[in-house]
């Protein structure tokens, strides 16, 4: 079957493995520290850890799209920006 099934490629497989790993790590985190760690951050909205992961992923997708649309299709810099965004969201949002 290999990679031809569902037209898989290694980069897209790695992308989905990262997403699943992130969701699974949320589950493990929740198992050891139940309650979701709710708080109200700098955007004045109530968020839990899951909300913060969602905001991180959607925000990163928009950062990548903006970079592709405005600069180039090489995504190392937007990846760095996305990691900074993730730290900001999990720390302050």
């Amino acid at each position: 079957m290999g990679l031809t099934w569902m037209a898989w490629t290694w980069p897209t497989a790695a992308f989905f493995l990262f997403i699943f790993a992130a969701i699974a790590s949320m589950g493990v985190w929740e198992y050891y520290r139940p309650g979701g760690d709710p708080r109200r951050g700098v955007f004045m909205i109530d968020t839990t850890r899951g909300d913060r992961l969602f905001i991180t992923l959607v925000g990163s997708a928009y950062i990548m799209l903006a970079w592709i649309g405005l600069v180039s299709t090489i995504l190392w810099w937007p990846l760095v920006i996305s990691l900074c965004w993730a730290v900001f969201v999990f720390r302050y949002v």
């Binding site: 031809t4 569902m6 037209a7 897209t12």
Partner: peptide, 15 residues
């Protein structure tokens, strides 16, 4: 997932 896979490839048919 299939849509994501298609979005980075070109196809002319025949899988």
């Amino acid at each position: 997932m299939t849509v994501v896979n298609y979005s980075v490839q070109e196809t002319f048919g025949n899988n």
